[in-house]
Design a protein around this nucleic acid. Structure first.
Length: 788
RNA sequence: GCCCGAGUGGUGGAACUGGUAUACACGCACGACUUAAAAUCGUGUCUCGUAAGGGAUGUGGGUUCGAUUCCCACCUCGGGCACCA
């Protein structure tokens, strides 16, 4: 037989599969009652960067490709789609630098990515390819935004935002890492800006609770739950008192999770932004100090307030007393002083706390610094204790969340225009749905402005428009959406990618949703994954999608690091290009290597030296074909094949791809020892290998005389009676130490084994002259004599 | 500080619900083939010991006939959160 030529084989079959459309999936026909069961496998669609893909990108795709190929052979109607998450800063920045249109750059990059993905032999249904920058796609992204607006979940708010002076862009909290811009590393500043917000906090409770219903890895659930930050506590009112306060003084509401410590409260603290401060101005005797302090904190972002950026540690606490007013502790009527301090956050709870220095480290630190009293008390830190105290003082139990509303405006060009129009008379008016999409206009200069306005603001002809309501002159919103927008619903569009009436047909959605299995990176757990769950729940509420959760199951892959253990990146110059690996070793080898190198969930360092192992394995499979002859099926080999069918089938379900491959290597070594191999056994081997190495198995399959693709054939079944061993190796121990092994018939009982073992010379020498006090017997595994 | 996860040969790693620790692969050494090299194939490869046997799964304890696996404490590394009251 000719030599294994990966290049020829892989190009040939990739072309043939595309011509035969074997991975294109049909929607169910409405007429027939009996439909194939569906399987929707999903990977995060790539951001087509100018650097091209690196080998790390292929890991998730390969894993899901294996799963989808197995499902197809198991008879499922499999949807495994692909597209491009193409809006975003790197493309815009690159386009600016090179003086190009971002749309042109995107086209180049997606062409390159497509070519790379095709060369790896993934079974994507390319007929459903989508692109978030396509107006026919973002029309529906804009449409969803309008629905949010109409349901009062999108609103404009003047707020201090995290501002990156280098990217000239407002950042969400999630995009700020160590008080630096996630993308460029510049220190984030504070800026006041009117921003569109999405009220994700209204869904906080459900986003937390419904995690119970989905099959996500525990660490993913835990991380989302921590991010949502649900916490049960109490709101308690403290009455205000002051020399000059009127008869009916106001009160101050604090939030606490430890109502039971109320008797230990020695002061209360307001966030510097708390609205009460201004109202109390006439009573306050040190107003200048207060104004000074507030001014100081105003210049800091929340991150600067909370974290010392140079040490990474928590800031030293500062504060100032509000002199002239006091509050009454409702539990014991004691008068307590009021302070303002920026260690209390305005955006959480009520923006005010009761300080219990004896039971809270932060309060303790603050009390010591400002010589405030510390009062030791008896506490009852149980649900009952907290409830009881809350009731006694007329407070109420409340639930709070750490989750904040989502800042949805970006002052950049390369994103979806937010479809809103500002009219002096009517205020914010949505663009009528029939006028969608609001097309992103071409601009001469894509550079962001120093004032923080989007580049779109400079195009008068686009900005100036008519109010859809009163027809008076009005202006378009010039901010664009963040790149999390298009990715929040893309999995729905694959189901019906060309629909121009709605984002996807409800009947098709009923068949295909939810996504059965979604694999992606841990870094998206609190961003994309949470955002898309939020959008999906909203779409469910307005009747657009039929399920309340988008993804039934979520798993996660470990990153592939460069050989030196660092993250792969172009700037570090340590990127391994898959094109070269595929050229030299072939896509099948690359796929097997990536799956074999380490457990799927774990990160690992790329090692080109080690690829030779998987390559030798594939060549071994290739050569085994020469051993095929019409010899009868050999029992031992048949058993090994059936054991492998079971093992590989199970391993794919748990994503234990590394052990699948080692097991197939063992089987290949076993076959190599055989003189001749019956063709049926070899074919079974090809079938369990084909999801991993689709090209070489297809070639061999056809060589064996088949005329239809192995990938449209059936997944083999194993038979329990064929995988059972008739003989087993029993471990014989004395006092827990292994003294010998005995090969015996399987299922032999204790009595017989004991008799046999005690005749064994390796055992006799350890047990003679001793009392056997106890015998431990595990069927088919071991026998252990405990002697005195 | 809090919440996840991980520590096993020279290297990546395996070991099912407590039952032969180091499978599979890389590397290395030796051998075969070759004029030679590459490729390929074969043998060996945790450690001490001539052997019988002993010791090793980050460290120290515990439970058990038996622990990489379960429990407690600690150390190191990776990830997430971080003044959320």
């Amino acid at each position: 037989m000719k030599n294994y030529n990966h290049k020829e084989i892989e190009e040939k079959w990739q072309k043939k599969w595309e011509e035969d459309k074997i991975y294109e999936v049909k929607n169910p026909s409405n007429s027939s009652g009996q439909e194939k069961q569906k399987f929707y496998g999903l990977i995060e669609f790539p951001y087509p960067s100018g650097d091209g893909m690196h080998t790390g990108h292929l890991r998730s795709n390969t894993a899901m490709d294996i799963i989808c190929r197995k499902r197809r052979m198991q008879g499922f109607n499999v949807l495994y789609p692909i597209g491009w998450d193409a809006f975003g800063l790197p493309t815009e920045n690159y386009a600016i630098k090179m003086g190009l249109d971002p749309a042109v750059v995107t086209k180049q990059n997606t062409d390159n990515f497509r070519k790379q993905l095709k060369s790896a032999g993934f079974s994507f249904d390319w007929s459903r390819e989508i692109n978030t920058t396509d107006p026919q796609y973002y029309k529906w992204t804009q449409w969803i935004f309008l629905q949010f607006f109409k349901n009062n979940l999108a609103y404009k708010k003047k707020m201090t935002i995290n501002w990156c002076p280098s990217c000239k862009i407002g950042l969400a909290n999630e995009e700020v890492v160590d008080s630096k811009c996630e993308r460029c590393g510049t220190s984030v500043e504070k800026k006041e800006k009117e921003q569109w917000m999405l009220a994700i906090t209204k869904y906080a409770e459900r986003l937390d609770k419904d995690l119970d219903e989905v099959d996500y890895l525990d660490r993913i659930k835990i991380q989302q739950r921590n991010w949502i930050g649900k916490s049960e506590g109490s709101e308690i009112e403290f009455k205000l008192v002051g020399a000059r306060l009127p008869q009916e003084p106001g009160s101050l509401k604090v939030f606490t999770t430890r109502a039971d410590t109320l008797l230990g409260a020695t002061y209360v603290v307001l966030a510097p932004e708390h609205e009460l401060i201004e109202k109390l101005k006439p009573e306050i005797t040190n107003w200048d100090d207060i104004v000074n302090y507030i001014a100081q904190t105003k210049n800091k972002t929340e991150i600067q307030r909370t974290t010392n950026t140079s040490t990474g540690s928590v800031q030293v606490k500062t504060g100032v007393e509000l002199k002239g007013v006091k509050v009454i502790n409702p539990a014991n009527n004691e008068e307590l002083p009021i302070w303002i301090a920026d260690y209390v956050l305005a955006s959480y709870g009520t923006g005010a706390i009761m300080a219990v220095p004896a039971h809270d480290e932060r309060d303790s630190e603050f009390a010591k610094k400002y010589n405030l009293p510390i009062k030791e008390i008896e506490v009852n830190d149980t649900e009952e204790g907290r409830k009881k105290m809350t009731e006694t003082v007329g407070g109420k139990m409340v639930t709070t969340f750490k989750l904040r509303d989502w800042i949805f405006s970006r002052q950049r060009y390369w994103g979806e225009p937010i479809p809103m129009i500002n009219c002096i008379k009517c205020g914010w008016v949505p663009v009528p749905e029939e006028s969608l999409p609001v097309i992103l206009p071409e601009v001469e200069n894509y550079k962001a402005t120093d004032t923080g306005e989007s580049p779109l603001s400079k195009i008068d002809s686009w900005v100036n428009t008519k109010c859809p309501k009163c027809k008076g002159s009005a202006k378009r919103e010039t901010d664009t959406m963040p790149n999390w927008a298009g990715s929040s619903w893309y999995y729905l569009r694959y189901i019906d990618p060309n629909n121009d009436q709605m984002l996807a047909d409800i009947e098709k959605l009923k068949y295909w949703t939810p996504v059965n299995w979604y694999n992606g990176g841990m870094e998206h757990t609190t961003l994309h994954l949470l955002y898309s769950r939020f959008w999906h729940k909203f779409l469910f509420d307005i009747g657009v999608v039929p399920t309340s959760e988008p993804y039934q199951k979520r798993t996660s892959h470990g990153f592939i690091l460069a050989e030196n253990g660092e993250k792969m990146s172009k700037s570090r110059g340590n990127v391994v290009n898959p094109d070269q690996i595929i050229e030299t070793y072939g896509a099948d080898t690359l796929r097997v290597y990536e799956m074999f190198a380490a457990p799927f969930e774990q990160e690992f360092s790329w090692k080109t030296e080690s690829i030779i192992g998987p390559r030798r394995f594939i060549e071994k499979i290739w050569k085994l074909k020469d051993k095929i002859s019409d010899v009868p099926v050999e029992n031992n080999l048949e058993k090994k094949v059936h054991q492998a069918i079971k093992k590989i089938g199970d391993d794919i379900e748990t994503m234990s791809f590394n052990t699948s491959i080692s097991h197939m290597m063992i089987l290949a070594n076993e076959m190599e020892k055989a003189e001749k191999i019956n063709q049926s056994l070899y074919e079974l081997f090809l079938k369990i290998l084909c999801p991993f190495a689709p090209h070489v198995t297809e070639e061999l399959w056809y060589e064996l005389g088949h005329t239809k693709s192995i990938h449209t054939d059936t997944w083999p079944a194993y038979y329990e009676n064929k995988i059972k061993d008739e003989k087993v190796k029993m471990v014989v121990q004395v006092n827990g130490k292994i003294r010998t092994l005995m090969e015996v018939e399987s299922n032999m009982e204790e009595q017989e084994i004991t008799k046999k073992a005690l005749k064994n010379k390796d055992i006799i020498k350890w047990v003679e002259d001793k009392d056997i006090k106890k015998t431990i017997f595990v069927k088919n595994k071991l026998i252990n004599f405990v002697v005195e």
